[in-house]
Nucleic acid binder design. Structure first.
Lengths: 201, 201
DNA sequence: CCATGTTTTGACAGTAGCTCTCACTTCATA
DNA sequence: TATGAAGTGAGAGCTACTGTCAAAACATGG
């Protein structure tokens, strides 16, 4: 999704400006911290005016709040072979998406997460997004099992899955390392435990 | 918890000021909306200065972000008879706490929730709190089953439970009614479904 | 190539949340 | 009642964010 067709000059410049703002913002956040970095500094580094900054990102927070992967995961779930459990369908879907990221996308994602893990207000908004994704996930899982979208059971399962992911994600400053590749394995392990809970009596 | 012993005059005045600020803030939020209400207005209505407002509440958000019930629920869980499942232990604990609230506390809680359900930034911070409570819940559940606090299984179960609660809570503006007594029944039903998922094969 | 209209941008002013300082008042206590 | 601590108010200052308006960059038809 990062690279659409070149299209007109206007579009290209826009994409360039947007990328410049985000890159400089990420760099400044890493160097000075999130709170200590002002929008003016970012704008100056990216060589645009403050107005332009807010035209591209409604708030300072939005610079690192963009998450483009959820829809991809939903599609990957639907593409899973029938008959496997909701949890496995999700895990496979996540694998499909994350293991196909380019090194640049992976690195950018890592930097993003490293920052918002450290800033409570950002974490809060990411969680808000994540929880809002329960709807999408519930629909996708129900779809995969050929059940109606509003089946409460799938809403519960989706909620449980998201809850487990939140539970094992490095929140609350447990270790200040941010999101490493190994953490994805942690998420998989936790979901495996959930799957076992769903299986036994 | 609202009414401690009277203690000294200073303590009483402090509690009174705090209550005044919060009450006027709630009223103004209900009348004009959260964003449209300025801290100055709240301060004026409560007859204190802006400085004093921020001395009692670090941010405007904090006025409606106080949640005193989680620790009570944790205690109620520990007091449950042994042998029942984690989910049931939690549901019983929640019942114990909520059904013992005074009408004033219940009403105040209802107003609080009605407001933050409508304001995304507030919802985000409430979720942050809620997710942070996974730690406490996991420890309480493990404790109840006589297992060590860092048992990953209980972390997963706690995460699943909290996820389910978030999933059925009226987020994302599904119906603008706020949190009604009936919604607690919804939460119980959803957790019942989770319990069933945990039970079958 | 040029004139036209649209989009993007920058400068500027203004609002409000939040912090900090400092002097003044109110309360506790010895 | 004297002394110190805690609570308060006034005001200045920083920054995120919004809105307006005119200039510049770009697209398009002739």
């Amino acid at each position: 999704m990062t690279s659409s067709l070149p299209a007109g000059l206007r579009e290209r410049k826009k994409a360039k400006t947007r990328a410049a703002i985000r890159d400089h913002a990420l760099r400044l956040f890493e160097e000075q911290g999130y709170a200590a970095t002002t929008v003016d500094q970012i704008a100056e580094a990216a060589e645009v005016s403050q107005s332009t900054f807010f035209r591209y990102f409604p708030t300072k927070e939005d610079v690192i709040l963009t998450d483009d992967y959820d829809p991809l995961i939903v599609e990957a779930i639907k593409a899973q072979p029938p008959g496997i459990s909701p949890v496995r369908a999700l895990v496979n879907g996540m694998r499909t998406v994350f293991y196909n990221l380019s090194p640049e996308e992976w690195e950018s994602e890592r930097r993003r997460q490293a920052i918002y893990q450290l800033v409570p207000e950002l974490r809060a908004r990411v969680m808000n997004q994540t929880v809002s994704a329960i709807d999408m996930l519930a629909a996708a899982l129900a779809d995969h099992d050929g059940k109606p979208h509003d089946d409460v059971t799938y809403r519960v399962i989706a909620g449980a899955i998201v809850g487990v992911i939140l539970a094992v994600a490095p929140l609350g400053g447990r270790d200040g390392e941010g999101f490493q590749p190994s953490d994805f394995a942690e998420v998989e392990e936790a979901l495996e435990i959930l799957e076992q809970q769903f299986r036994r009596g």
